[in-house]
Structures are given as C-alpha cells and as structure tokens.
Simulated assay, not measured.
Amino acid sequence: MTITSNRPAWLEALEHDGVAVVPAAIPPAEVAAFEADAYAWLGTFGYDPLDRTTWKRARLPPAWRTGMYSSAAHEAFVWRLRCVPGILAAFASAWDTSPETLVASFDSINITRPLGKFGRNSKATKPWPHLDQDPGRAGLELYQGIAVLSDSGPNDGGLCVLPGSHRLHSEYFKAFPPPPWKPNRIFRIPARGMAWYAARGVTKRKVEAKAGDLILWDSRVVHWNEDPIGERIRLAAYVCYCPRSLIAEDVLSKRVQLFYTRTWTNHKPFLAVAGKECVPRLAEPEETDTLVRLIGSSVEDST
C-alpha cells in the first residue's frame, strides 16, 4: 500500500535538506511594486539603475557585503512585503501554526549590482559560510527566509547552502567546540570546517529560484551568498518570523519600542537585538492589523 502525504513538497525538502523553495509565494504585482519602490528608495541617495554615471559608491547608502541595506528596514514598501499573505502562510506551515500568531524580524533588503561591465568594478565577495543559530542549541531555533524579487539563476548571485548540514549541527560542534558566542553574532565556518562537512558528503548548492518565490531554511544550515555576475541586479528581502509564544513578554515590549523608533533588528524575532535607527525616506509604514501583530503588539492595544 502506498501512503501519500498531504504536505507540500517544499515542506518535505525543508525537513530533509534544511532548505526549500516555496514557489510563487509573492504575487507578480507585489514583486513589481517592490522593484519600483526599491529603485525609488535608492534614488533618494542619487542612484539611478538606468544611468550608469550614477553607479558610484557615494550615491548609495551604507551597505554590508556590497548590497545588504538595513536602513530600509522600516520603509513602507518593505513592511508591505512582510505582510504578503503567501509569505505568512509559508512560515505558518513551517512552524505548524496560524499566520495570526507570527511575529517578524525588522530585517534588511538586498540590492546587489552584478560584477563586471554590467555593474560594479569591485572585487567579488569571498564566500563567508556561517550559521545564525546558537552553536550550543541542538534543536531548531528559527526558520530564515529570503523573498526572491528578481530571478535567481546560476549567474544571478544569491543564497548558497550546505543541504543537510542541519542534521550534523550537534556533531559538528562536538568536533569543533565553539568559543563563547553572543546572540547578535553569526558563527563563521572555517575552511577546516567546510572540509569536515565535505568528508561527510555535504557540499555546496546554489539555490535557484524565480522572482516571487520564497526561500526558507533551517537556521542550523550553513549558508552564505554569492555576487551576481550576469546582467541582472539582485533584488531580495530577508524575512524571518516565529510564533509569538516563543518570545518573552519583555522582548515583545522592546520590539514595539524598536518599531516606533524605527530601529532595525537582526534575523531573530525572539531576541530583538537592536541595530541603528533607520527613518523611512520614501514613506512611513501603514499600521494595519497584520503589521501590528507582526511587530509583537496586539490589535486590541492599538485601537
């Protein structure tokens, strides 16, 4: 007798490989709106993707790893993306909860120009394999996500992972005991660590996806990003959610304060590690019921 599962294929992949692509989680109209607003946001700094004479670092906001912009964390167009029902439904399925229980990170976006004649002349970013999860925690800590807003093929840069590395998390840190770790830090995997994974058959995969897809991965999965080398600018947004029940009350209160001071956070909604203030340059976010829940407040408190 054949037993079939009603679970979508991407959930099976998320469990087995630690990474999955959720197809068409973001409607095409939302993808187009994000692209237009992202370029309009860059335009407030003097950058025009259609005018190569403006393709200078002085006309771009401060970035990490050449294209990660935390200063857009509270722009209206970024919050509109965080509230997309397809993204919330996917995270809710991964956590086995309802979308109404989720709380979001106040995270960065990614606008990375390709290397070479179609983009920037700087050197390629070196691979930086890392984990965001606490090395001392054995079980799942978080599902991380990337909203894919431009096609991500073999030459378009984007997420690289070691599929299955989540199942070796505890074993790895027995072989390589970690130094003291702070919750607002990433944990880098050195060359000898990558060789350790390779010896166990765990090797790199560049995750390919279409604009409108959502990439999810287990926070125990070793990952990093690559620069685009084709003709397309990479557009993406980092989206992370967890159930409200995983967050302490004092952290929920802190999150609300961080929202109203327009402060960005790292990937972990349950920690609310604060970055810098980032006052919106285009438009302030609309405080819909969904947004209020996602910051960790309650709709009743906001009425």
Score class of each variant (00 low, 15 high):
Ser105Cys: 14
Leu115Arg: 09
Ala72Arg: 07
Glu100Thr: 15
Thr125Pro: 02
Gly116Ala: 14
Arg80Trp: 02
Phe77Val: 06
Cys83Phe: 00
Pro99Tyr: 10
Ala94Asp: 02
Pro135Ser: 10
Glu100Pro: 04
Ala90Pro: 10
Pro129Glu: 04
Arg59Val: 05
Gly136Cys: 10
Glu100Asp: 15
Pro62Gly: 12
Pro85Cys: 06
Asn110His: 08
Arg113Gln: 11
Ala90Asn: 08
Ala92Gly: 07
Thr101Gln: 14
Met68Leu: 13
Ala76Asn: 07
Val84Phe: 03
Cys83Ala: 13
Ile111Cys: 07
Ile111Glu: 03
Ala92Pro: 03
Thr66Gln: 07
Ala63Ser: 12
Ser71Asn: 02
Thr97Cys: 13
Leu115Met: 11
Lys126Leu: 08
Leu60Ser: 01
Asn110Asp: 06
Ser105Ala: 15
Thr66Ile: 10
Ser105Met: 13
Ala94Leu: 08
Trp128His: 07
Phe91Ile: 13
Pro114Glu: 04
Gly139Tyr: 03
Leu140Met: 15
Thr97Leu: 04
Arg137Ser: 05
Pro114Ser: 10
Phe118Glu: 02
Tyr69Ile: 15
Gly67Glu: 05
Phe77Asn: 01
Pro114Gly: 08
Val103Asn: 09
Pro127Glu: 05
Ser98Glu: 13
Asp134Ile: 14
Gln144Met: 07
Ala94Thr: 05
Val103Pro: 11
His74Ser: 11
Ser93Glu: 04
Ser70Met: 10
Ala73His: 08
Ser93Pro: 01
Asn121Leu: 12
Ser122Met: 03
Phe106Asn: 12
Arg113Cys: 06
Met68Phe: 04
Ser93Ala: 15
Gly119Asp: 03
Pro85Gln: 06
Ser105Ile: 13
Leu60Lys: 05
Glu141Phe: 05
Asp96Ser: 11
Leu88Asp: 00
Met68Gln: 12
Trp128Met: 02
Ala124Cys: 04
Ala72Thr: 12
Ala73Tyr: 00
Pro135Gln: 09
Asp132Gly: 02
Ser98Thr: 15
Ala104Pro: 06
Tyr143Gln: 01
Arg82Asp: 02
Ala90Phe: 01
Asp132His: 05
Phe77Glu: 01
His74Phe: 04
Gly116Thr: 13
Leu102Arg: 07
Trp128Ile: 02
Arg113Trp: 08
Ser108Glu: 12
Ser105Gly: 15
Arg82Ala: 08
Gly139Asn: 15
Ile111Leu: 14
Gln133Val: 14
Ile111His: 03
Met68Thr: 14
Pro135Gly: 09
Tyr143Pro: 00
Glu100Trp: 03
Pro99His: 07
Pro61Trp: 03
Trp64His: 14
Asp132Ala: 07
Asp96Val: 09
Tyr69Gln: 10
Phe91Val: 12
Ala124Leu: 05
Ile87Phe: 10
Lys123His: 03
Val78Trp: 00
Ser98Asn: 11
Leu102Met: 13
Thr112Phe: 03
Phe106Arg: 11
Gly145Arg: 00
Ala73Arg: 04
Gly136Leu: 13
Thr101Ala: 15
Arg137Ala: 06
Ser108Tyr: 09
Arg82Glu: 02
Glu100Cys: 11
Ile87Asp: 06
Phe77His: 00
Phe91Thr: 09
Ile111Ala: 08
